[in-house]
Nucleic acid binder design. Structure first.
Lengths: 211, 211
DNA sequence: AAAAAACTTGACTGAATGGTCAAAATGTAG
DNA sequence: CTACATTTTGACCATTCAGTCAAGTTTTTT
């Protein structure tokens, strides 16, 4: 389990980490309103007032967990390298995001839930930080297109398509598993999924020399 | 507003419809736990006990609304025609789903929320009805591929990709609008989005005669 | 136009839950 | 080892909210 600390004492560092790990699990499963402080406290192995000693309000826990997840989610996007080979960079990014969906579905779900309900806690972040970053990467994609290294596609919608598809496997996991043939949901299922969608996606954006 | 009725008296038909319309709005915005019966009753313009006269428990309202939405969501999928042109059929389906995302984002969000939280109310439906339907359509796509009318792609993941991408525009609307350049989120925004993703998707699955 | 059936609601109730508080327990610094 | 700061918790409080109930109002039936 990932932990995060940054504050004062030794005990505070430990306990904040424990609380945030527990909170991620609970919030991502039941949503903000659907989760109770008692639930988180129990999962964290401490009393409710003790938990409230570290995070005075339920919302404080939620916002902190959310901020932590946001970083996981953005790092691979930042890593898209303008100087790399376009197809290879987008392949790497997609694979990375699929890995995250497999490894940390809770983060993805927490985030999805927040957006789904209108992003009350992070709307500002979306409009400033995220927008800035997306604009930047859209610019990179546009450049690649103008260099003939990518088919002429809308960069923003391409980005959305990658986000939507990769996160689908974390957020809609229950549905995916309910629908997919039994034998395909084992072991390297996420790798297979990544291959399949890359097969479609990359052929969809490869420069079109024919016709 | 869409209404549904099927029960006894005239008044019951009317009021159940009003309640379900109100409930869809409330549930899709705040989720099941986040919504209160009072909220729904107020939006429906009646007292809480009156509402409970029609639907004895909160869950009854929720399940009914969910069942209704499920149909909207499946109809265009059923309509994919095995005898049509594959590219054209999948184009039509994708456009149809994008239209639904634009017109009835609440339905999409209600559904997304349900799945996100583990589909407590419709897991059985997913494993039986939905699975059956998806298997059938996957079979159609496989046939198309074997006839050389489509590139060899995994039919299940292709379906997921279309679902994920189209629903993204309803479910993640806040994020999409926060990130997209101001001038592109007006008027025929959803049409533009549909064009963009079809541009990528259809080229990704068109039979590959070159190389 | 009665009588019966269907509908509506104000006033409750009980359980769940976010948050407080004061006192006890534990850890830490000198 | 002692004084001080930090951490921990049982008991509590106030609010919210799903659901009840009994008494009234309206609609339908005859």
């Amino acid at each position: 389990m990932a932990s995060s600390n940054n504050k004062r004492t030794r005990i505070q560092g430990i306990n904040r980490g424990i609380i945030l790990d527990a909170a991620l699990e609970v919030f991502s499963t039941y949503g903000f309103r659907g989760s109770t402080i008692d639930q988180i406290a129990e999962k964290a192995g401490m009393s409710k007032p003790n938990l409230l000693y570290y995070f005075p309000r339920k919302e404080d826990i939620y916002v902190t967990v959310l901020e932590n997840t946001l970083e996981d989610w953005l790092t691979p996007f930042r890593d898209i390298d303008p100087d790399g080979d376009p197809i290879e960079e987008l392949r790497k990014y997609t694979v990375h995001k699929m890995k995250l969906s497999a490894l940390r579905p809770e983060s993805s779900r927490l985030f999805a839930n927040e957006i789904l309900h209108g992003a009350p806690a992070i709307q500002e972040f979306l409009k400033t930080n995220l927008k800035r970053l997306v604009d930047e990467k859209a610019g990179v994609i546009k450049l690649w297109i103008s260099q003939g290294k990518l088919a002429p596609v809308d960069p923003y919608h391409l980005i959305f398509m990658i986000w939507a598809t990769t996160q689908h496997y974390a957020d809609f996991d229950v549905q995916v598993r309910a629908v997919l043939p039994e034998e395909t949901t084992n072991g390297d299922f996420f790798d297979d999924a990544a291959d399949s969608i890359l097969n479609i996606l990359l052929n969809g954006i490869r420069p079109r020399h024919n016709v």
